[in-house]
Amino acid sequence: MNKYISFLLLISIFISCKSTDNTPLPIIGKKKMVDGKEVDHFIPDFSYTDQNGKTVTNKQLDDYVYVADFFYTFCPTICPTVMKQMLTIYDEFESNPKVKLVSFTLDPKRDTPEHLKQYAENLGVDHDKWLFLSGEKDATYDLAEEHFVVAYDDPDSPDGFNHSGKILLVDQNRHVRAFAEGTDPDDIPDFLDDIRKLLKEIETKAK
């Protein structure tokens, strides 16, 4: 009988260990063809203006893990809820210099850098930690697609366009490694774990 119990205990330990396993986060997305070679999906080159008026390209983000979303400040539907989740992520990693947050606007006409700066101030966040980027609208639609976010002109929508509220985690090699549904607060704890896992992976690799 005792043997039986210890066997069960062993199994339960084994199972519980498995849930905190060390398999790395996947690289999300279909492989791409570059110069005739098949490579993992990656975020293509982009160039945007942040709320400080500075140009931001992938290069500026190369040393960071970043959490991205697509939004616009006048969005009356899902954006506020997604932003609330982004704020939770911001609060969690505020003091970690390796993590940045990047919000791309889908409405550059109204979301000028000055307007985005005021928005960031109203959110009470650090301008260097959380970048609010504006650029050409069609290019942003394409970039959203590369982040697996659907964004398109939609005359039936309150502001003429529609999009999904995904929050993405991008690593230092431009790979998307995890995502959360920004409209679902229950998705966030797992996503925070994913960010920690990626940071650990990078830390281990650096050693």
Partner: peptide
């Protein structure tokens, strides 16, 4: 109301 003022009524900082 909840999309801006949030399901729990906490709002979004100084935006909503």
């Amino acid at each position: 109301c909840s999309s801006c003022h949030m399901a729990d009524g906490t709002g979004l900082k100084n935006v909503y």
